[in-house]
Amino acid sequence: MGIRHIDVRLCNGCNICVEDCPLDVLRLDEATKKAYIAYLRDCQSCFLCQSECPQDAIRCVAVHERRMPKAW
């Protein structure tokens, strides 16, 4: 699942997470200038946004709920 939450009280709208997310999961709301999760299920759970956010506003969890066939 990866990204679970962006705390809008902490987010300062710097846009780093939106620019850097490899799977382009995030967007910045034009009006509020806060980041939001636009394409949750495409998140690859890489934790890059969480580790780069200067405000520590992003919470990721390494629990996968994505459907993925098992090898055995």
């Binding site: 490899p22 799977l23 495409d42 690859q44 759970s45 890489c46 934790f47 994505r66």
Partner: peptide, 9 residues
């Protein structure tokens, strides 16, 4: 598109 980071892009 496996489960690991770097595997889905």
């Amino acid at each position: 598109k496996g489960l690991g980071p770097g595997h889905r892009d």
